[in-house]
Amino acid sequence: MITKKIGVIGCGNMGGAILYGALESGVLPKENVYVYDINPVMMEKAKGWGVNLAKDDEDVCLSSDIILLAVKPQNAAEALSQCKKALDEKAMMSIVAGVTVERLRNMIDGTPRILRLLPNTPAMVFEGAFAICSDNDFTEEELEIAKSIYSTIGIIEMVPEHLIDAACALNGGGPAFVAMFIEAMADGGVKQGLPRKTAYRLAAQTALGTAKMILEKELHPGEIKDMVTSPGGTTIEGCEALEKGGMRGAVIDCINKAAEKSKKL
């Protein structure tokens, strides 16, 4: 259990998912967490989790040893300006998409240590995927604390900062893309007569199980495909349809477009 005081600036979808997952896992004691969000609805949600509610961004920083900045990119400069000098010599974790460490430093009055990372919303169900910058100036203890927070609610991959935009597209936006594929699979099942609820459950569980085969059994995706595609069978017919529809190219283009947008934020 982490004994350092942890502050959270921004408790929306992503910040809230991380905080909720960390609290539920038991790695963060609620009495050691301080939260502020400009949205009263988000503050009420945080209150329900039993954490300390700060009066503003500066109060979060003054009360905490390590601060998680989880605001939208367009709100980062304003939020950091409200911290005043309270971030000086503190440790700050940033999940602000598209905003580099250099840009963050230019927004801050003081010289905090900064760790940039890219999370995703499945952290709420302890299945998050976190890309953490390997080039950071956190102390060894602070980095271990960060890893302990995120490893309890998902998996961690250390990447250099210049690859964070790629991670933003892949694991950051990935839940939306995977959900779209699951929805499309379910639509196909419904077209063939399956009840909608049944189709969603079968499609979602299939995606979950396949992912576990890759992560836990370390099977190559192509190997899983070959395991299922019997000669002259039904699955190879479906694979042919996906190839004719340009599925691979569309997905690659999807990640490229999202990564390029991240670079422009």
Rank of each mutant, 00 (worst) to 15 (best):
S81Y: 09
G173P: 06
T139S: 15
K212G: 03
V159A: 06
M213G: 05
L265N: 02
V96F: 11
I6L: 12
F126Y: 06
T121W: 07
T100A: 12
V159Q: 08
L19Y: 08
D226I: 14
Y20F: 13
D65V: 15
A91D: 06
V228S: 09
A169E: 06
V8I: 12
D59Q: 06
L215G: 03
K72Q: 07
D135I: 00
K191T: 13
P40T: 08
C254P: 07
Y36H: 14
G232N: 14
E161W: 08
I114C: 02
E157N: 11
V178E: 08
I38C: 12
E260H: 12
T111L: 06
L87K: 12
A46Y: 05
M180D: 00
V27N: 02
I9V: 08
T139L: 10
E260R: 15
I214P: 02
K264A: 14
F126D: 13
A97L: 09
K47D: 01
V101I: 12
F126E: 13
K147A: 05
G15S: 06
V96T: 10
N120V: 05
A129V: 04
A77L: 10
A77C: 08
T152H: 14
K257A: 12
G16V: 04
A250P: 06
V27T: 08
E223R: 05
R201F: 00
C168G: 10
I149Q: 03
C168Y: 00
I18V: 13
E216A: 13
M124E: 10
R201E: 01
P160Y: 03
L80M: 13
L163H: 09
L115M: 04
V51R: 06
E31Y: 01
S151E: 06
L242R: 08
Y36W: 14
G154R: 13
G15P: 03
V125S: 02
E102R: 00
Y150E: 00
M247P: 03
H220P: 01
M92S: 06
M1E: 02
G193F: 08
K84P: 02
R201L: 11
A207K: 07
A258I: 11
C11N: 09
C254V: 01
H162P: 01
G188M: 04
N52R: 11
E142P: 01
G50Q: 10
P175I: 00
V101G: 10
I164F: 07
